[in-house]
Design a protein around this nucleic acid. Structure first.
Length: 222
DNA sequence: CCAGACGTTGTT
DNA sequence: GTCTGG
DNA sequence: CCAGACGTTGTT
DNA sequence: GTCTGG
């Protein structure tokens, strides 16, 4: 699963890495992003690639209220193409969710050790995400969820599952403004090459989402 | 047909 | 135990 | 994901 | 909105 991550690189690095023009409103590096918070994302609206924020935790357009969002922070990529809640989003509401690392808590006998996982090349990357727009009267809400898959060999040492990370050369493909068959997107994900990952232990200061500070991403000594 | 769920992870 | 907040 | 709250009525 | 269960 993926329930916490970081996006601590500079604005300039993001603009360059994802080929975006202009600037990012309210930009700030984040060290401890939790469900329910805004996350930096890129979509293609048919004309241009747009960078902006979505709230993490999917609230489908049909939801009667927004409470469901707290639960749908991930979507299983193995079955998303046949689930009523995700099928249509997979066809036409795909987004990049920007990150430079994510956290997993490895279970020990009686405790949990938080770990920071990042690309071996240490670059900023993109999770494969789905988004939706929810509306009721004059309220509207744009939300997203992170697709997951079975852990690869490396991640398996830490956790059963892992987020879907898009290799750089597949990012534009993922957000192409063309409607795709859900099963096509399922195969697309299944055939992705999983990036080389690395990990280190971090302080349990990261446990509390109130601590959005640099110490969260620093290697734990001893 | 209508009613009711629609999700994930981890744990039991 | 379950829900909310971060 | 984890942490922390979770309730009412009446009185101050 | 769309799918499943009855």
């Amino acid at each position: 699963m993926c329930g916490r991550f970081a996006m601590s690189v500079s604005e300039l690095e993001i603009l360059q890495e994802f080929g975006i023009e202009g600037e990012i409103p309210d930009f700030q590096p984040r060290f401890n992003i939790a469900p329910g918070q805004k996350v930096l994302t890129i979509i293609h609206d048919g004309n241009t690639k747009r960078i902006g924020y979505l709230k993490w935790g999917l609230v489908p357009s049909w939801a009667k209220d927004t409470k469901i969002g707290y639960k749908i922070i991930n979507a299983r990529s193995e079955s998303a193409h046949e689930k009523p809640s995700f099928k249509k989003l997979l066809a036409s509401k795909r987004c990049l969710i920007l990150a430079d690392s994510f956290y997993e808590w490895k279970k020990q006998e009686s405790s949990k050790q938080p770990k920071r996982i990042y690309l071996k090349n240490r670059k900023v990357f993109a999770f494969a995400g789905l988004w939706d727009k929810w509306q009721l009267d004059d309220q509207q809400l744009f939300t997203c969820t992170i697709l997951t898959r079975k852990a690869n060999n490396f991640m398996g040492k830490i956790h059963e599952r892992m987020p879907v990370i898009l290799p750089k050369e597949k990012q534009d493909d993922w957000i192409t403004p063309i409607k795709r068959e859900p099963s096509y997107m399922h195969d697309f994900i299944e055939n992705l090459q999983i990036e080389e990952l690395d990990a280190y232990n971090v302080s349990d200061i990261v446990n509390s989402a109130k601590n959005d500070c640099k110490e969260c991403i620093e290697p734990l000594l001893n």
